[in-house]
């Protein structure tokens, strides 16, 4: 049991929840429900939906693969080095995505520092390709993995690692069989957060990967374009995005942020 809060808090909270819900309800109000089937079958919409699912899932997986090792190291660092590394890894989360996209362009674009040599060596051009979308999505999703995982690692009793070592397990085995399985719930949450962020990514994608239907035009980009041409299609796609995100968050219950 918790001590009861003053009644005013409840009224206030109700108003805030209503404020968040109102725009969503207003959007749903405008949706041309009778035509929604036909709208969602349009080629542009189908392409964008598939592309969004594919790129966001790859990006979430990549963010986990890249983020977990960083979190492992970060959770053992202390002092100013740790603060600087953590701030750097968190930056894409608070940075306007357009800035992130521009930064990616200057690094991995055709004339970018790394992009031009990458093209010379491998012939791979990241902008305007599916790989470019994945890169932009991974860039913005990575902080969610690093922060969520590090928080979980720091709250894990370090003596579990000692216990595993005392049983003869080397560091790799300790990490793979004891540490990571112990924070499985947080890793799932990290992956889902990263995926949700990647699914909704707009600014970095359009800036870095452009807006090519069928190869880089994800759902949010398609919604943006449709807002000026076919508003009904935009609304139909928005409904899909809202439903998917809401379903995932509800299914996760309270696990999207490490509870303990």
């Amino acid at each position: 049991m918790r001590a009861p809060l003053p009644r005013q808090f409840r009224y206030f909270a109700f108003v805030v929840v209503a404020l968040v819900a109102t725009p969503l309800v207003a959007l749903l109000w405008r949706v041309p429900w009778s035509r929604i089937h036909e709208l969602l079958r349009e080629q542009v919409v189908v392409d964008a939906l598939i592309l969004s699912l594919v790129t966001s899932l790859i990006a979430a997986g990549t963010a986990l693969l890249l983020g977990i090792p960083v979190a492992l190291i970060l959770s053992r660092m202390e002092g100013i080095k740790a603060s600087i590394t953590r701030a750097l890894m968190t930056l894409p989360m608070v940075l306007p995505p357009v800035v992130g996209g521009a930064a990616l362009l200057f690094a991995f674009g055709r004339n970018g520092v790394l992009g031009s040599s990458l093209e010379d060596v491998t012939g791979l051009v990241l902008p305007y390709s599916l790989a470019g979308v994945v890169l932009a999505n991974t860039f913005v999703a990575l902080p969610f993995v690093v922060l969520t995982t590090e928080t979980a690692l720091r709250s894990l009793d370090p003596r579990f690692e000692l216990a595993a070592a005392s049983l003869g397990a080397n560091q790799t085995r300790v990490t793979m069989q004891v540490v990571l399985p112990s924070i499985k719930g947080s890793l799932v949450a990290a992956g889902v957060l990263a995926w949700a962020r990647a699914l909704g990514e707009f600014g970095a994608t359009i800036t870095f990967a452009g807006n090519v239907p069928g190869s880089t035009q994800t759902m949010p980009l398609a919604v943006f374009v449709a807002m000026e041409t076919d508003q009904d299609a935009a609304l139909a796609m928005s409904v899909v995005l809202i439903l998917v995100s809401l379903t995932v968050l509800v299914a996760l219950r309270d696990r999207w942020w490490p509870a303990r």
Partner: peptide
């Protein structure tokens, strides 16, 4: 290295791995 030392240790609060069954804990080492 610690994991190569021929010692065993039982901690005060046991530190059984919570994500494993008893059997998996016992088989760990």
């Amino acid at each position: 290295s610690p994991h190569h030392r021929d010692f065993g240790m039982v901690f005060d609060d046991c530190l059984l791995f919570p994500h494993m069954t008893v059997e998996q804990n016992l088989a760990f080492g």
